[in-house]
């Protein structure tokens, strides 16, 4: 099954919609709840990052019998120092965004923890692509 989403950087109402949709699809396909939860966490964090830090973008998801692949791409400012960004607690989120409960600096570490394969392609000024694979056993 293939799913495509637009992550509208101007529409806060929709942030998290792609993740909800993927979660529902996985649950409907009978994927085990712990795997659904891991996919939901990873997809949500990547989607919110594309929205908050990347100004919006798109998501492509492919669900196969043994794996789910989630690719989130944005056209924002990119990440200058990826190893720093991967550290728990590191965040450049604004005060306003933090007040809303985002910006704990746990998104990328949570993605790492909950995926079986993670590949992040990013460069300053060139956006960010986060490719995540979770095996379905």
């Amino acid at each position: 099954m293939k799913l495509d989403f637009v992550i509208d950087g101007n529409n806060f109402d929709m942030a998290g919609e792609a993740s909800s949709s993927v979660k529902r699809s996985l649950a409907k396909l009978g994927v085990s709840p712990p795997v659904v939860k891991r996919a939901a966490i990873a997809m949500y964090e990547a989607e919110i990052n594309a929205f908050i830090h990347g100004g919006g973008g798109e998501a492509h998801v492919e669900i196969e019998s043994d794996r789910v692949e989630m690719v989130i791409r944005d056209f924002g400012k990119g990440i200058a120092d990826l190893s720093l960004a991967m550290q728990e607690g590191w965040s450049t989120a604004s005060e306003q965004v933090r007040k809303m409960g985002f910006g704990a600096g746990m998104g990328l570490p949570n993605i790492k923890k909950n995926t079986d394969e993670l590949d992040i392609t990013t460069a300053p000024g060139e956006g960010t692509e986060v490719k995540m694979v979770i095996y379905i056993k």
């Binding site: 806060f12 809303m100 704990a104």
Partner: peptide, 27 residues
């Protein structure tokens, strides 16, 4: 903190939060 809630809140939990913006519904 929504990242913490995403991984810590379990199915069937009553989630207590002072956050009331739209995104809490997705979480």
């Amino acid at each position: 903190l929504l990242s913490r809630v995403m991984s810590g809140c379990q199915e069937g939990d009553a989630w207590i939060t002072v956050q009331t913006h739209l995104n809490v519904i997705a979480v």
